[in-house]
Design a protein around this nucleic acid. Structure first.
Lengths: 270, 270
DNA sequence: GTTCCGCATGAATCGATAG
DNA sequence: ACTATCGATTCATGCGGAA
């Protein structure tokens, strides 16, 4: 296998994406700054301006993605003035006007959501994982994310330890591959479009917006080894780190120097 | 307590709703015919016409709902030509233009979703429960749907240290002020906006769109005993049946005679 | 070595208070 | 009136230290 590249770039994605060739990326997985959040670091995009802010990124991402590639966007709308704001709905409509297909919407059920109590709402315990594509046909390795029979939540995802990972990898990578269908139908089942994962806990050295399980699931599903994964809002580098671990090339772009530094360390520390 | 009314009506909701007084309903819970589904029975509303088809219903429902009432809409977009259709997103935007507030979106995670396999998507395992209101303030009985606490409480609350018994003063800058003694004797916690419920088994004579647990949860949450629950697309009568069991008055409207008959029997059978 | 327990903290939201 | 900041509320998680 040729040497893999894990490229971490400091800069704004609109500019940096222009340097990438068209049709060169297999999977885009990212979680852009949410409206009005991370105000101190990212400046806080206003909810009403969110779609306009995102559009140029959406356009460049459409250009760099391969024809059979996939774009997975992790996002959730805030409550503004007692209502869920509509910028995510409008974003989906705007993306379609741009030429993207809205193929699917996965739900990330966050088992440990932020606590709190309010007079007229409960804790928000889920986020959207919106799947966009350029064409109806795209690469999808469904068997790569199969799960042991039984409840998805109770078995694998409750505690996805390293032991679990190596065990699964050995199964997939071993000589059983020739007769996958044999054990496939007996021991494993296809997952659904609802993912149960805990957010990472704060007492780790650096907390990320999403747990490693999340990009891992989509990287396995939508790419092969040696493919190219892109995260245009890299943050602390989770996507790049996971891509590297799974033997995928990756490009991560981050505008803030402090996050960029964390991401670089996170990847090298591996 | 005055005698409860469980009113099942045969007819089209647009016409029948006009007979109801304004501001008379506490909760609307319904699952309208989805686009292109139930083609033989409902005539199959085309996805592209769905919003226009729904609007007049949305308008009448807005009129009959009390000022502190709630409208919960169970819906999920179909796949059309390889994409998720956007009629649900557009419906939310249209409802807001009509004067509804989009307060929240709950997820119904269907634990046993319909089996199946497709080349480019997994089983669809969730539906939307979209909450609309007329005002920011509405009736909500949060304690009525509390759930048992997780393991954490069992371990943590068993032995309260002396420190926990007195208020833990806010630590410098970042610490949460804790009042752990508040949690003493609490074995229940508030739920989140993700509901895990199995679909009903198919061994019933007529399959309902949703299990009884689903309307039950929202009826408990948004109404008191003696309140009025409305389902303008009653189907086989689940909403009315549950409302009756929970001592709520109810109005159920169904346009198809065969479903109407089933609903009437379902309620009388109680 | 295991298991158990204490602890900090998080893409949150609301209401009140202050400029 | 409109925005900015602050305090209060609440619970699952994983780490580290203790039993």
């Amino acid at each position: 296998m040729p040497k893999l590249k894990t490229n971490i770039v400091l800069g704004d994605s609109i500019k940096e994406l222009k340097k990438l060739p068209a049709n060169s990326v297999d999977l885009i997985f990212t979680s852009p700054p949410y409206a009005d959040s991370r105000v101190k670091t990212y400046g806080g995009i206003k909810a009403d301006k969110y779609v306009d802010w995102f559009k140029p990124y959406g356009k460049e991402l459409l250009r760099v993605l391969k024809e059979d590639g996939t774009f997975v966007l992790n996002i959730k709308e805030k409550v503004v003035d007692g209502e869920r704001h509509t910028y995510v709905l409008e974003l989906i409509l705007a993306m379609r006007e741009m030429g993207w297909l809205w193929t699917e919407e996965y739900i990330w059920h966050k088992r440990n959501s932020f606590p709190g109590k309010w007079p007229n709402r409960f804790r928000d315990s889920w986020e959207r994982l919106i799947q966009f594509n350029k064409n109806k046909r795209f690469k999808m390795n469904q068997q790569a994310v199969m799960v042991p029979m039984g409840d998805w939540a109770n078995t694998r995802l409750k505690n996805l330890s390293k032991k679990d990972l190596t065990r699964d990898e050995s199964k997939v990578g071993s000589g059983f591959g020739k007769k996958i269908s044999n054990w496939l139908n007996k021991d494993m089942a296809y997952p659904t479009n609802v993912l149960h994962m805990a957010t990472e806990c704060g007492n780790k050295s650096h907390s990320a917006a999403f747990p490693e399980n999340l990009p891992e699931w989509f990287i396995r599903l939508f790419t092969d080894e040696g493919d190219v994964v892109l995260d245009p809002f890299l943050g602390s580098g989770t996507t790049s780190k996971v891509a590297q671990r799974l033997n995928r090339n990756s490009i991560g772009i981050e505008i803030l120097p402090e996050y960029y530094e964390i991401a670089v360390k996170s990847v090298k520390g591996k």
